Simulated assay, not measured.
Amino acid sequence: MAFVAALIVFPLAWTGYLSLTDAEGSVRAESEFVGFQNYVEVLSDTDRFWPAVARTVAFTGVALLFEVVLGMAIALLLWRPFKGEKWVRVAILMPLVATPVAVGMMWRLIFDPNIGLANQVLGWVGIGPQPWLAGQHSALPTTIFIDVWQWTPMVVLILLAGLTSLSDEPQEAALIDGASAWQRFRHVTLPLLMPTVIVAVLLRGIDALKTFDILYATKGRGGGSFHEVETLNVYAYGLSFDYNEYGLSSTVLILFFLIIIGSMWALTARKKGAQR
């Protein structure tokens, strides 16, 4: 416990200290204590910081919504035994095998506006080529699609585990009472499964908030030429490793950490309410 606490507390405390200094250029360079000046500067930055916050929220919210809905649908389909069930489960879990960087590079080639397979498929059905990752307004939705493609199987695993642990008696009683499939899902399955859904949302939501590798692998520095996919992670990375602004980047990371803690607290409180 002490070892784990040290791994968490020391980096967090050091980052908090750097956020109160004007550290730049090198981590070994002398720096001065500036108090909350960095926080004032970051929170008043309407060109990069707040748009990055909006993209982070949009990316997390939309990706999480699709992953939970699709994960629930797939988990319900896999809930009951059927022929070829094992092969279908293996196929669904395949996206989890590859690393996010490899997935990002693969989809970057698929969505290439000139030689990519995606535009070739659209051409077969008479639809013109799309910019996908190259477009200023289409890049963020495209990266959300990539994230949904890779991480929906994780939600499927969690929800499927929850479904298999449910008792069959409430389902059988509802069936005897004449409830339809939708009524059984809405009034029986979903309420019983809600604690598991909250766990899936909590785990996947926090992970989606921290997404970096897919975004950097597909768009590179700054989240693209117009910062079209620049989330808080990408923004903080650029401040640290592109501009060596360690004080400002630490400030962004501390604010981001507070956002994650707030999200965890809200979802945990919702989970406790669902369990009651």
Rank of each mutant, 00 (worst) to 15 (best):
S263P: 14
Y237L: 03
V103C: 02
H137Q: 12
F145M: 15
P129C: 06
R270A: 06
M94Q: 12
V201D: 13
L203D: 10
M154Q: 07
T231R: 09
L43P: 13
I110T: 07
M264R: 00
L166A: 11
F59Q: 12
L239D: 01
P170M: 03
L140F: 08
F82W: 13
T99W: 06
T99D: 11
W182K: 03
G223W: 03
V97I: 15
G205H: 13
F36P: 01
G128R: 07
L157C: 14
V201L: 11
V9S: 11
K86G: 13
V197D: 04
D207R: 15
Q183E: 06
I115A: 03
A181C: 06
S250H: 07
S263A: 06
F256Q: 04
T196K: 06
V40P: 00
L93G: 15
R55F: 07
V34R: 11
P191F: 13
F36M: 15
T46F: 10
E230W: 01
T56I: 05
V252T: 03
E172T: 07
G84V: 06
V97D: 02
S138Y: 09
A173V: 13
A161T: 15
I74F: 15
A102Q: 05
A266P: 02
F49M: 07
E67T: 01
F185Y: 02
T60I: 08
E85D: 07
I261D: 03
L122Y: 10
I214S: 02
K219M: 14
G116D: 05
K210P: 00
S44D: 09
A236E: 03
F256W: 12
P81Y: 05
A217W: 15
D147F: 11
V34K: 04
F10H: 10
V90I: 08
V62Q: 11
V34S: 04
K272V: 03
Q136T: 14
L215R: 04
G123Y: 09
G205L: 01
Y17R: 10
V53I: 12
F3Q: 12
S240A: 05
G223Y: 06
K271I: 00
G238I: 03
R221A: 08
N38Q: 14
W87V: 04
V125W: 14
V101D: 05
N38R: 07
P195N: 06
T99A: 10
Q120N: 11
P191L: 05
P81D: 08
D47F: 09
P141Q: 02
G178S: 12
W149V: 06
L77C: 04
F226Q: 02
A5T: 04
D112T: 14
M106K: 04
I144T: 01
T164E: 10
Y243G: 06
A73F: 01
G273M: 05
Q275M: 11
A217L: 09
N38T: 12
G61A: 07
